[in-house]
Amino acid sequence: MSITDMTSMAEAQSDLRSEINKRLERLILGVSDYCYQCAKCTSGCESHKLLELEPHQIVALLKRGLIDEMVNSEIIWTCMSCFKCKERCPQKVPPVDILFALKNLTVLTGKQVPGDYTQMLQSVMSIGYIQDRQTVPTRSGDTVKREDLGLPVLSGLQDPNGFQNIITASAVEKI
């Protein structure tokens, strides 16, 4: 017995589906099964008009086990994480959290990480923050540094190497 999408000939991946559902449960984020496709999420999706993200379709594909289709798609990286979908879902389904799960799955399976995420990750690994202190422009046309503004010294990590070792393990750990 199997379920096949006759357009792409893809088979339902029920194991991955249940892995994602278990993950939502462990993180106390909600249950995907109750979706009745009212598409209240997509009607209010901040990314829909600009990038054609359809949260209700994400939930529908998850329910049908078509995980690879999503993992291989750029669309999952278009979520603005505004949380409107989760907030307003009449069935307490969290499309935004399903999208996080799918993106994590993409990264864990070694597919490329898009955009500036790699850079942010590297920065966090080495200094604990997504970026170091920036020199910023002023409205009068100068530039200033944190040090110029009378703000206290930003106390960074106490043991950067230790931090890096400990945190690296979590970056590749499944939930």
Binding site: F100, K103, N104, V113, G128, I130, I167, A171
Partner: peptide, 24 residues
């Protein structure tokens, strides 16, 4: 009060791995 040792909250990396976010 300023405490030493804080780092990123992890939320910007949630798309990479939520375990990392949770840990941070």
């Amino acid at each position: 009060v300023d405490l030493p040792g804080f780092s990123c909250c992890g939320e910007p990396l949630k798309s990479i791995n939520q375990m990392l976010t949770l840990h941070m």
